[in-house]
Design a binder for these strands. Structure first.
Length: 488
RNA sequence: GGUCGGAUGGCCGAGUGGCUAGGCAGUGGUCUGCAAAACCAUCUACACCGGUUCGAAUCCGGUUCCGACCUCCA
């Protein structure tokens, strides 16, 4: 097994990855709250950890990957009177909360499928694990790290911090947190502003509610991930992932809950992908500047010059390291689109390359260079740079400037297959129509034009080309005949 | 305000002390009836001011600017 190094937020360092069980890996990633359209921000963790999931399997691990769906409404704000997001949406649309959750879960799945994100091994749903969450609260209460007030249960952060470190993950000091926490005008039942809810009493109007030992209510903001990761991966597992915005308070609270209940901080390695920005500013629901994935796929947002294929989005994200912010723009996405086409064109050329008796270039280090980059905290942009170097070499070989032996060609094919298809999960953008009648028609037109060209009737040939151009169909004359594409 | 991160060529984006990724755009060329596409070649960098060093985009100090978290967020 190769040595894989990953950045661990818990220690702030790049560390050699060693799974608890030498043959398998357990991984939990925070999934979406399903009360809105999936957007570009959802694509980043999904793709980052999809690549990790695929890579770990490539390395030979058996991987159990859990990614949750949150369909329990979290409160809009910290005040006791708050409403939950799914409940609000349901009320606005006059639907059952479950209708809202189900609708957006389906949308999320459709978008993930288009992005070629593999299904996780288990995709648990928060509302299906109320019992587990209640049991966990009981444990935390029994261990003395929570208290009940008026039908709600709160985590006692101050008490917890006396024997544990609240702030291990986000490197915050509890004194700073207390200084900076909002004062809630006496609305809260909490002993301290830094405490957080494990169970909230449901007000009369609150639609999403479940019975509990403390009365009708709903689970707190951070509890579901602790309960579900524990249920499916155990009290200790290997990797916990999510967006950087979840480090505090969400993941910090998870660690506190798990330590309070099980005396174990859940995961060994905490990994966080960075945010996507638009014009340098974070894209987020609260900022109202997010673009949904459907809008990208269809080109229907005012900020978009064109539609972008899901593979372009995927490739665009892989061109940046997952821990860097990545700035969205049409120019950047169009550059990614062309780069992706170049990459697959290279694969196409490779598959049609004629082998020579021996190679004029040394490709022996290429594989290890890619592996090294990948093992260095999943440096996908570096892997891509090596693959583009290989594309250059492949094209030069096609032009006759280099030669490649049969075995070297096989090595290259395996390399591209492994990384581009297997680990990065990319596939070629199919630009031709799936309508076979139309394809046959186009074939006929191109045949006629090719006859016209053979007779050197350039005027007619150009007329056909220009006419098709007006219909947004682009003709390319190559050595081996003409092909067509839809124009963007 | 507190904590943390960033500033790389026209754009995106790697890179932690010398060998100066990669993609896109630009420019020149090959190919082509022409064009497009494709391919090849190639220019432009390391926010600012000091310091350490034989040598710094990379280390240290300071300055400016930007962002993230501290409230739901991927």
């Amino acid at each position: 097994m190769q040595d894989l190094y990953i950045h661990n937020t818990l220690t702030g360092n790049k560390e050699l990855f060693k799974s608890i069980d030498s043959e398998s890996v357990t991984m939990y990633v925070c999934g979406p709250t399903v009360y809105g359209e999936p957007h570009l921000g959802h694509a980043r963790p999904a793709i980052t950890f999809d690549v990790l999931f695929r890579y770990l399997k490539h390395l030979g691990y058996k991987v159990r990957y859990v990614r949750n769906i949150t369909d329990v409404g979290h409160l809009l704000n910290d005040a006791d009177e708050g409403a939950d997001k799914i409940g609000e949406k349901a009320r606005a649309l006059q639907l059952e909360p479950m209708e809202v959750a189900h609708f957006y879960t389906k949308k999320y799945h459709e978008s993930m499928h288009k992005l070629n994100v593999e299904n996780p091994s288990i995709e648990p749903i928060a509302s299906g694990h109320i019992i587990e969450q209640i049991e966990m609260i009981k444990k935390i209460l029994d261990n003395g790290f929570a208290y009940e007030v008026n039908g709600s249960v709160y985590f006692d952060v101050i008490k917890y911090n006396k024997t544990n470190n609240y702030g291990v993950l986000s490197r915050r000091k509890i004194e700073d947190l207390m200084d900076n926490s909002r004062v809630l005008d006496g609305q809260s039942d909490k002993k301290n502003a830094v405490d957080f809810a494990l169970w909230k009493k449901a007000s009369a109007e609150h639609i999403m509610r479940w019975p509990s030992p403390w009365g009708d209510g709903f689970p707190g903001w951070h509890l579901e991930c602790s309960a579900m990761s524990c249920k499916y991966l155990g009290e200790e597992f290997d990797i916990h992932g999510g967006g950087m915005d979840l480090v505090f308070p969400h993941h910090e609270a998870e660690i506190a809950q798990c330590c309070a209940a099980n005396k174990k901080p859940a995961a060994k390695y905490w990994m966080h992908n960075n945010m996507i920005t638009i014009a340098g500013q974070k894209m987020g629901k609260s900022l109202g500047n997010f673009i949904t994935l459907d809008e990208f796929f269809n080109g229907t947002h005012e900020k978009l010059d064109q539609a972008y294929h899901p593979m372009v989005i995927r490739f665009f994200l892989l061109q940046a390291h997952y821990r860097s912010t990545i700035d969205f723009s049409n120019a950047a996405l169009q550059a990614a689109e062309k780069g992706l086409l170049r990459l697959f064109n290279g694969i196409n050329v490779l598959n049609n390359l004629t082998s020579s008796s021996m190679s004029s270039v040394d490709i022996s280090l290429l594989q290890s260079k890619c592996d090294d980059a990948m093992n260095d905290d999943l440096n996908t942009p570096i892997v891509l740079s090596h693959l583009f170097d290989a594309v250059k070499l492949i094209n030069a070989t096609y032009e006759g400037k280099h030669s490649l032996s049969h075995s070297d060609i096989q090595i290259l094919k395996l390399l591209f297959d492994k990384y581009v298809i297997g680990v990065f999960g990319l596939y070629a953008i199919e630009k031709e129509s799936t309508n076979s009648e139309f394809n046959n028609l186009m074939k006929l037109i191109l045949e006629i034009r090719s006859n016209v060209k053979a007779n050197k009737n350039w005027e007619m040939a150009d007329q056909i080309r220009d006419g098709l151009n007006q219909l947004h169909i682009e003709i390319k004359d190559t050595k081996d005949g003409s092909t067509w594409n839809y124009k963007k």
